[in-house]
């Protein structure tokens, strides 16, 4: 079976009105309630989201702003841990077919055992991983073969400061999409896009990379979604969705998604 991320990216018949722009949603597993994970995934799929990034909470999320930090702290307090997340997800493929990506920091994966972690992901039907603090060179030297063996796509980040040379190397190493961080910031730190981002989006678009780009950080509304996807394949919403969960729990996920696109 083809990897669901690749399949989604290659769909050439996007539903009408979407102009082929993809929406990915991030949430922290175990938040707001410990056992909300499956319900949130199912509701996100029903609302027509294209990818889901399930966050594995970490005690020291150093690339995240306050919103995701707080959701991680709360999730850990609720009792979330790696094995439990796998347990919650074990039958997830009986009810959803949406591409699922696990996102987290490298240390919990290292403690679980990278091989064992990848194998579990494969058993469950996880399609990809985003581990921001697993650097490109270490991935290539030590883990690439393991990820591939278990059918997992590793998704890399680029930022406005990433050099052209490095972007090309990352493009070369990627096989799904490139996670394009919209501005030099932690998650949820900045809202909206200015000329700087427009220039950055244009610059990357003109590089004609092999992999499509999906923009993350700073997207919270229909307007920012539209701006972010003008030159790219899609966008990711994290902090704004977490805020929605904080205020509403698992109710009304559909409403949140509908107001984005």
């Amino acid at each position: 079976m083809m990897n669901r991320i690749k399949q989604k990216l290659q769909e050439d018949n996007p539903p009408a009105g979407r102009a082929g722009k993809l929406l990915s949603i991030y949430f922290t597993a175990g938040y707001p309630q410990l056992n909300d994970t499956v319900q949130i995934i199912q509701d996100l799929e029903k609302s027509g989201v294209d990818f889901i990034e399930v966050g594995l909470p970490f005690s020291d999320p150093l690339a995240d702003g306050p919103t995701i930090q707080e959701s991680s702290t709360a999730a850990l307090k609720n009792g979330m841990h790696t094995e439990l997340l796998f347990e919650q997800l074990k039958d997830i493929r009986k009810t959803v077919s949406i591409p699922l990506i696990l996102m987290g920091y490298f240390n919990p994966v290292l403690q679980y055992g990278v091989e064992k972690f990848c194998q579990k992901c494969q058993e469950i039907g996880i399609d990809g991983l985003i581990l921001p603090d697993l650097p490109l060179d270490v991935y290539q030297e030590e883990y690439e073969s393991t990820f591939k063996k278990h059918g997992l796509i590793n998704i890399f980040l680029i930022t406005p400061q990433t050099s052209e040379e490095r972007i090309k190397a990352i493009d070369e190493a990627s096989e799904g999409f490139i996670y394009m961080v919209s501005s030099a910031s932690t998650t949820g730190a900045k809202e909206g896009f200015g000329e700087e981002q427009a220039a950055y989006f244009n610059r990357i678009a003109s590089m004609n990379l092999n992999n499509p780009q999906i923009v993350g950080f700073g997207i919270s509304s229909a307007q920012t979604f539209q701006q972010a996807t003008e030159k790219t394949k899609g966008a990711i919403i994290g902090s704004a969705f977490i805020k929605h969960l904080t205020e509403n729990g698992v109710a009304g996920i559909n409403n949140f998604i509908n107001q984005i696109r």
């Binding site: 005690s59 020291d60 841990h81 920091y105 240390n107 919990p108 290292l110 403690q111 679980y112 603090d133």
Partner: peptide, 22 residues
């Protein structure tokens, strides 16, 4: 401590079995 990643470095650190830094 056990081998893990803290503040960008692979080293010995105090952590839970699940890899949360204590």
């Amino acid at each position: 401590g056990k081998v893990g990643i803290i503040h960008g470095s692979k080293t010995l650190l105090m952590q839970t079995q699940d890899g949360q830094i204590t």
